[in-house]
Simulated assay, not measured.
Amino acid sequence: MSRKTSVRHFEDNLSELENIVTQLESNQLSLEDALKAFEKGVKLSKDCQSVLTQAEQKVQILVEKQDGERLENFNPEDNQ
């Protein structure tokens, strides 16, 4: 899958996941439909996480190649 395709795929999956969350939060689905939506949401979430993990690995490789240094783990609390 090309980079543009994987980014588009990620964006589509994320949008669909957001729609599922909205549906589940509305409490308008039957139990059966809610379970189906939840199952699909879990799959979409795993797919999105996989794309994000791959992107993170690519960034780490690029940074290591550029500087010859190791990438430090990001800690948002250090930036406050």
Rank of each mutant, 00 (worst) to 15 (best):
M1H: 15
K4E: 15
K4M: 13
T5L: 15
S6L: 14
V7F: 07
V7R: 10
V7S: 05
R8C: 01
R8S: 06
D12P: 00
L14H: 01
S15V: 01
E16M: 01
E16L: 06
E16P: 00
E16D: 09
L17T: 00
L17C: 01
I20R: 03
Q23K: 07
L24M: 07
S26V: 08
N27F: 10
L29A: 10
L29D: 03
S30A: 05
L31G: 04
D33T: 02
D33F: 05
D33V: 06
D33L: 07
A34K: 12
A34L: 04
L35W: 11
A37G: 09
F38W: 06
F38R: 13
F38E: 11
E39I: 13
K40R: 15
V42L: 01
K43H: 03
L44M: 08
L44W: 01
D47I: 05
C48L: 07
L52E: 09
Q54N: 13
Q54W: 08
A55H: 03
E56Y: 11
E56R: 11
Q57H: 11
Q57M: 11
Q57D: 09
K58N: 13
K58P: 05
K58Y: 08
V59F: 15
V59M: 14
L62S: 12
L62E: 15
E64Q: 13
E64W: 06
Q66M: 06
G68C: 02
E69Q: 15
E69K: 14
R70V: 06
R70E: 11
L71F: 08
E72S: 09
E72I: 09
N73L: 14
N75H: 09
N75S: 07
N75I: 09
E77F: 12
D78P: 02
N79H: 12
N79V: 02
N79C: 10
